[in-house]
Simulated assay, not measured.
Amino acid sequence: MNIYDFTVKAADRKTVPLSCYEGQILLIVNTASKCGFTPQYEELEKLYQSYKDHGVQILAFPCNQFHGQEPGSDDSIQSFCSLTYGVTFPVMAKIDVNGPNASPLYHYLTTHTEFKGFDPSHPLAGRLDEILEKEAPDYKENGDIKWNFTKFLIGRDGEIQSRFEPTTPIQKIKAEIESLLAD
């Protein structure tokens, strides 16, 4: 089993088989419009524009599971992303990424990767640790998504290459994408 075995829903609720991205490098990210990390949409769009012609695709999955930071409808999310950040990569239907209603794709991603901590040099890392310690003292012990803008890099073969927490610098993600493109 790999990423190409899953289907997801586009914002218009149409089914999208991830096999339609076979042979491409994917960056899958859970997003939110009212989060301290929301400006990452701009970085992601720049990354997409730089690499889309080289077979790199970004797929965003809005999620409202982290302090209600994505309360909008699929239509309002689409509008926000395009008008505020000029997003042109696919922003899919809103989903759950953790818990009993987690999308099968995210269940797969989180059970096949580990949480390795937040980048301590990021200004929000300490705050995230503080919030999560209060809500789930054992949060470091499982692969669940910890916050919005967690990213998964998928190779052309559909296999998970890397997991990046929201505090990971975009330069590190870019370097890993370039490494995959060089292979």
Rank of each mutant, 00 (worst) to 15 (best):
D119R: 05
H67M: 10
I77N: 14
D119M: 07
F118W: 05
G117P: 11
I95L: 08
Y48E: 03
K94H: 10
P39R: 03
F80D: 11
V87Y: 09
S79K: 15
G72R: 00
S76G: 03
G23T: 03
R156F: 12
M92Y: 15
V97S: 03
K151V: 08
A32C: 14
C20T: 15
K94D: 01
S76W: 10
Y85R: 05
F152K: 00
E133S: 15
A10N: 14
D183K: 11
T7G: 06
P90C: 08
A125D: 09
N101H: 14
Y21L: 07
K46H: 15
H112F: 02
E165N: 10
S179L: 14
T111L: 05
I170E: 13
G158S: 01
G86D: 06
P62H: 13
F61G: 03
G86H: 12
S50G: 12
N64E: 04
L153T: 13
E70M: 07
L18I: 02
P137F: 05
P123R: 09
Y4N: 07
P39W: 09
L44T: 07
T167M: 11
C81T: 04
D138L: 01
N98F: 04
E43C: 04
G55R: 12
V16C: 03
T150G: 08
T15E: 15
N101P: 07
P104R: 06
R156C: 12
S50N: 14
G155Q: 07
D119Q: 10
K34F: 09
P120F: 05
S82V: 03
T15F: 05
C35D: 12
E159K: 07
S50L: 09
A93T: 14
Y4S: 01
L109F: 00
S82T: 15
F115P: 13
R163L: 03
A60P: 03
P169A: 08
I173P: 13
Y48P: 10
A60L: 04
G158C: 10
G72V: 08
D157E: 14
A175M: 06
K52I: 07
Y21D: 10
R156P: 13
N142E: 12
F61N: 04
A102L: 00
L44S: 02
F164A: 12
K172G: 13
T113I: 02
G23F: 01
K140F: 07
C81Y: 05
V91L: 06
K174V: 08
Y139R: 09
L132T: 01
Y48T: 08
L109C: 05
L44E: 09
L180K: 12
T168D: 05
F118T: 09
I28C: 10
P166I: 02
T38W: 06
D96I: 01
E135I: 15
P71R: 01
P17C: 00
I95N: 00
I131N: 06
Q171Y: 11
Q65H: 00
A102F: 00
F6S: 03
C35G: 02
I170Q: 14
K46V: 10
P90N: 12
E141G: 07
L47V: 05
G68N: 09
L180W: 02
Q171W: 10
S162D: 15
A125T: 13
V97N: 04
P123S: 12
V8T: 10
N30I: 03
G68D: 08
P62C: 06
M1V: 00
T31F: 04
Y106M: 02
T38D: 10
P62L: 01
S82W: 13
